[in-house]
Write a protein that binds this DNA or RNA. Structure first.
Lengths: 153, 153
DNA sequence: TTCCATAGAAGAATATTTTCCTGTTAAACG
DNA sequence: CGTTTAACAGGAAAATATTCTTCTATGGAA
């Protein structure tokens, strides 16, 4: 599989910041016509460089102003236990992200909720229902200093 | 400002999972014609429920396979120091997310890099150049268990 | 050099979608 | 009941996406 050239990279940089930009506009920006840009985008989608397109919504306007970050350590670390934990986490709709970590903490969770009461209820009725959790530390976001889905390359 | 009805919410749920779905398809799914769907989307954009549209790229294919999470505590917590720190963090292209937290840790950073050597170099030549950092703890993602930009509502 | 072969890219033609406008229906309210 | 308003349907025009054919530059191989 051949690598991407600079034009491909430029297209990706544009699309990860504004997926609604038309191929025509991108073409103009890159001093090309629509056809090659269109074909490149299709190729980038097909090869998997572009995974999908999403709308980014305003959490606060949708009544999910509270972001919590949870650090979880398991009590037992057998493979089965880990898989079970991951499976159960994936079923919690409040959890937007979950990472298995290297270090003394096993998992990071990012959680969006209506308020602190709902967080309390979430921990009480959902998280604590998952067995095998050893340590659970909670942090709350005071301010989103910076938050983007774009990566630098 | 009047609230969103169930149709608006359905549209938002669709778009935050697939921004490329046409108004026509959405209309079909909701048993409407394209016009009202189109008008609702425009209104949702204008009112700010939809912030923007982005392409989600594959980090690994773009040679950024390593995700690090950094927990930073400042030495001094005057307003000026915090603002300065936030400003400097925003200039680091490797940092995708930065949150000011409540608790013993002041900031969470999510960082995407080529490899562990690059992380070392990032800390050495960029992070440590920022004054006022008291404690710096690093964690690495072993596995993305779950990661979405969509929120549940 | 000359002759393919190949890989973009341009340009044109077509299919879809977006966008806007008008008329209609239905619920809301006096 | 009549009036008003909001939401919707339908359709036309404009813009865009998509496909296809042709052109051009580049790089071997003879």
């Amino acid at each position: 599989m051949e690598l991407l050239d600079e034009t491909d990279l430029k297209i990706l940089r544009i699309l990860q910041n504004d997926a609604k930009k038309t191929t025509k506009d991108i073409a103009k920006q890159l001093h090309l016509t629509a056809s090659p840009v269109y074909e490149r985008i299709r190729r980038l989608e097909k090869k998997g460089y572009i995974k999908h397109y999403v709308a980014i919504l305003d959490k606060k306007m949708l009544n999910r102003p509270v972001t919590a970050i949870c650090m979880v350590s398991l009590r037992y670390h057998n493979e089965g236990f880990i898989d079970t934990f991951e499976q159960q986490i994936k079923e919690l709709v409040e959890v937007q992200e979950c990472y298995h970590m290297a270090g003394k903490v096993d998992f990071f969770l990012k959680i969006h909720l209506e308020g602190l009461e709902e967080y309390h209820e979430f921990v009480r009725s959902k998280l604590s229902k998952i067995h095998n959790i050893g340590v659970l530390e909670s942090y709350f976001v005071l301010k989103e200093v910076h938050n983007t889905t774009a990566i630098d390359f």
